[in-house]
Design a protein around this nucleic acid. Structure first.
Ligand SMILES: [Mn+2]
Ligand SMILES: [Mn+2]
Ligand SMILES: [Zn+2]
Ligand SMILES: [Zn+2]
Lengths: 135, 135
DNA sequence: GATCTTATTTGCAATGATTACCACTATTGA
DNA sequence: TCAATAGTGGTAATCATTGCAAATAAGATC
């Protein structure tokens, strides 16, 4: 008996995945799918837009990428260094992001929610501004 | 000299505006445009979906309504009692919301941003959970 | 290396909320 | 009453994102 992947677990290494991973690795900004796809095309990498969307979604689902949504509803992705829970201070001009921790905020959120009898709490905390370079 | 409205300022009272205002007034939940439009139709009020969208956007622009976006990208509106800056603890099941203040968080956000040299700072802080009624 | 299984890729057609148009209607000041 | 124009709302267009189904290609097995 040699069931290849009983639990539906696999993962093939493809040219497209590597190209996208590269683009994400060399960027410290939050990027959109369209944006990343455009960069790959410029680099001569031939990757379908649908593939970029698929992969970004998959990577975000497994927690390998952080996601945030612009006011216009566009999803932006970034590979964060910290695997820990954290938040971001993002430049609204270039997308550059700084990872920040906020233990105090975590505690506050938990307390407020509990005080009001809410359960299954989650929170969103994002800081936006203009970075030093973009002033 | 009797220039009616030099700075483009006016505001007419219409049946549609009153109907929408009413729906918003009697709800303490964040509601979508579609949702509000559906309610108006049920009530027998004849209001176009486009009008609902137009008005909600206009009211949000003037700060008369608070807006937040779901993970699916849908905009939800609510008429908040406080005109002051505040945040929300929202039930992800029924949309019911509690207004919360967070001076500590305000200070933290300001400090973090300044420490990193960011300017023109804004912040997003939303708490989501399941309210007592929906458990 | 040949072969097979199926994970991935990808062009193209939906989706779905929101907006642009714009001709038509109705409020309000005179 | 009447003109000026804010407001309305049906319909078409936008646009990021997803569904689909056929074509491609890892990589395990022979
Ligand atoms: Mn947190
Ligand atoms: Mn605040
Ligand atoms: Zn910047
Ligand atoms: Zn609830």
């Amino acid at each position: 008996m040699s069931e290849s992947f009983p639990n539906g677990n696999s993962a093939r290494s493809t040219r497209q995945k590597r190209a996208l991973a590269g683009a994400l690795a060399r960027s410290s900004s939050f990027r959109s799918a369209q944006d990343l796809h455009a960069e790959l095309r410029l680099r001569g990498e031939r990757v379908g837009l649908t593939t970029v969307y698929n992969q970004l979604r998959a990577l975000a689902d497994t927690g390998e990428l952080d996601v945030l949504r612009t006011d216009e509803g566009e999803s932006l992705y970034r590979r964060c260094s910290s695997g820990q829970h954290h938040h971001h201070l993002v430049c609204r001009s270039c997308g550059m992001a700084v990872e920040v921790e906020a233990d105090a905020v975590e505690a506050w959120a938990e307390a407020v929610a509990r005080r009001n009898g809410f359960t299954a709490i989650t929170h969103t905390v994002e800081l936006t501004g203009v970075c030093p370079n973009c002033q």
